[in-house]
Structures are given as structure tokens and as C-alpha cells.
């Protein structure tokens, strides 16, 4: 059987509604392909004429952006057709649907993870990597791998010569790590041993969804750590659309100049003629729904004792 990608009808419906779903990849071993909405809002008729979404083939770590929903069917993509294409290419299915082949990044990976475990989102991840001052060569200890959404970003930051040790519910004693990131139900239990393993002045980060956990962690951290700070990082996404606003009866005649609307900046370069003579405005507004809470990030620095 040739490997190909196929979408199941009901899940496709869900996909179009812009919710999380999962798509089956009918391949040699029946790998599962995760799917996640990638547009800001499907219902708002994005100016890009079709909504888009992302696919990941976990086996190959190939990320594909899929754009064609209009036919209500992607069709079949022959895997063999993709081999040898440069990243960024658009590939077609037998039914004319198309996908973009994108090089994988930790960000895309995070977007398509199944959210069974508490995962860290991109804003949290970025902030953690920055705050822990993780640079190439660092040794990082991650406690609570979960779905690995943070792990890929940590690995990216320490490459090429560093190391990320990550584990789930197992006490690791051997590694002397520079940084530590517990993401466990009872993070405070790991902290005394983390203190033993870390270099002095090393930074620890604890990610907890609940404030009670934070409270308890902070209490525990006081013993060996200093500069204990807790943050919350969130992202607000915006949707952008082009439209013309009704200016009422003020304008005399049809002269677009008389419209007090802001003119679209410049799309002289854009090939298609969406920018007609009428005065349209590019408008942006925050998406109506957002992740309201991911977790609290508590950072602490190991005291210098010698």
C-alpha cells in the first residue's frame, strides 16, 4: 500500500470549524498525524482565500501546511512525490488540494502536539529559554517531559554541544545540570535535589498551572535559592482583514478621496488586483478567544555559597 494522507469526513468538518482534531495518516504503519488550526479564525473569512492548517508527520518530522479546504477534500498525497522537493514547496494532491512542505521547527511542533498533557505554549517556552539564559553548550535538566513541547526548544537552544536531560517521574541523580525545569504535579518535591545538582548561580524554572503549587514551590525554594520571581506570560493574537467601511452620507459623489478612511498602505507589488479603486482599509482586532491561562513560571537562582 502506498503511503498517503487521507482525512476522515467528520474530522474534516471539525477542522473547518477551526477546532482541534486529528487526521489519520494511512501509511505503512498507520502513523497518526496531528492536526491543529493555524489560522486566527476560520469563521471570519480571512482575506487569504482559503483557511490553512498544519500537518505533522511524526515519523519524518515533516511539517506540512495545508491550505485547500474548498474542495472539502484534500485528496491523496503521494509521499514519494514529496521526496526531493525543496522545503517551502507547494505540492498537489490527486484531487487538486495542495499542501506546503515546511521545514520543522519547535514552534510548529508545539502547535500540533496532542494536548493530553499540560503543555507549555510558545510564549512560555520562549520566556523560559531566555530567562534560563540557555545558550549553546548548556546542560539542562528537564523534569516532566510531558509531550516534549519544551524539550525540542531546549534542544535547539543548547545545540550543538550542550545537552538536555529530560525525564518523567524519575529521579535523576547523576547529571550535574546547569538549569532545571520541573513541570510535575508536586514540583516542590524535586527542588531540594535540584539544588544539589545545579551549579551555583544556576537558574531553576518551575511551571505550574495552579497558584497553590506556586505558593508551595516558593516556600521550598527559599531554602537554597534566591531571586525567586513568578511570572505569567500570555499571547493575544490578532486577526487582520481588509474591508471598506461605510462612511455614511458625508461623501459627495464617488470620489474615494473624500472618504475619511485610511487607505491601504501599498499593495502595488501584489500581483492580483484585489486593491481596486475603492478605498479599503486593513483592519486588525484581537481574536475573540484566547488562551486565558497556561501556567505560572517561577524562576529562582541558586545561592552562591562559596
Amino acid at each position: 500500500m502506498k503511503p498517503h494522507l487521507q482525512i476522515e469526513e467528520e474530522e474534516e468538518e471539525e477542522a473547518i470549524r477551526g477546532r482541534l482534531g486529528s487526521v489519520k495518516y494511512i501509511g505503512d504503519d498507520g502513523w497518526v498525524v496531528n492536526f491543529v488550526n493555524f489560522t486566527t479564525d476560520f469563521n471570519s473569512k480571512p482575506t487569504f482565500d482559503k483557511p490553512c492548517s498544519i500537518y505533522v508527520l511524526q515519523q519524518y518530522l515533516t511539517v506540512i501546511l495545508c491550505i485547500n479546504f474548498r474542495a472539502n477534500r484534500f485528496g491523496v498525497f503521494k509521499h514519494s512525490d514529496w521526496i526531493g522537493k525543496p522545503f517551502g514547496s507547494k505540492v498537489l494532491s490527486n484531487k487538486g488540494g495542495f499542501v506546503y512542505l515546511l521545514a520543522p521547527t519547535p514552534e510548529l511542533w508545539t502547535l500540533v502536539l496532542s494536548h493530553r498533557t499540560q503543555i507549555l505554549y510558545i510564549a512560555d517556552i520562549s520566556f523560559v529559554v531566555m530567562y534560563l539564559e540557555i545558550v549553546p553548550g548548556c546542560v539542562v535538566l528537564e523534569s516532566g517531559t510531558g509531550s516534549g513541547s519544551l524539550t525540542t526548544s531546549l534542544a535547539r537552544a543548547v545545540a550543538p554541544c550542550g545537552h538536555v536531560y529530560t525525564f518523567d517521574f524519575h529521579e535523576q541523580r547523576a547529571a550535574a545540570a546547569k538549569f532545571s525545569i520541573p513541570d510535575l504535579p508536586q514540583p516542590w518535591l524535586t527542588m531540594p535535589s535540584a539544588a544539589k545538582m545545579l551549579k551555583q548561580d544556576a537558574v531553576l524554572c518551575s511551571f505550574s498551572p495552579c497558584i497553590e503549587q506556586v505558593q508551595r514551590s516558593c516556600e521550598t525554594l527559599k531554602k537554597d535559592f534566591t531571586d525567586i520571581r513568578t511570572f505569567e506570560v500570555l499571547l493575544r493574537t490578532y486577526e487582520v482583514k481588509e474591508g471598506s467601511l461605510d462612511c455614511g452620507n458625508i461623501n459627495k459623489g464617488d470620489s474615494p478621496q473624500s472618504l475619511p478612511c485610511k487607505r491601504k498602505q501599498s499593495s502595488s507589488r501584489s500581483s492580483n488586483g484585489t486593491n481596486k479603486s475603492s478605498a479599503t482599509t486593513v483592519m486588525a482586532k484581537p481574536c475573540s478567544e484566547a488562551k486565558g491561562h497556561t501556567g505560572y513560571l517561577t524562576f529562582a537562582r541558586l545561592k552562591c555559597l562559596y
Partner: peptide
């Protein structure tokens, strides 16, 4: 940025376009 994003969309130069605004709050614990 909104204009830029729109132009990129229209010209189909990029995918996965998104405008985000980060928000950071510190807590006293």
C-alpha cells in the same frame, strides 16, 4: 504590521502569518 500581513497574504508570499501581542505579568508570592 496589519498592512504588512495583509500584503503578504495577498501576494501569497508567506504562510502561518500571525500577529501576536505578548503580555507579561509578575506576581508577588
Amino acid at each position: 504590521l496589519a498592512s504588512c500581513m495583509h500584503n503578504l497574504q495577498v501576494a501569497k508570499m508567506a504562510v502561518g502569518l500571525q500577529i501576536t501581542e505578548p503580555w507579561l505579568r509578575e506576581y508577588q508570592v
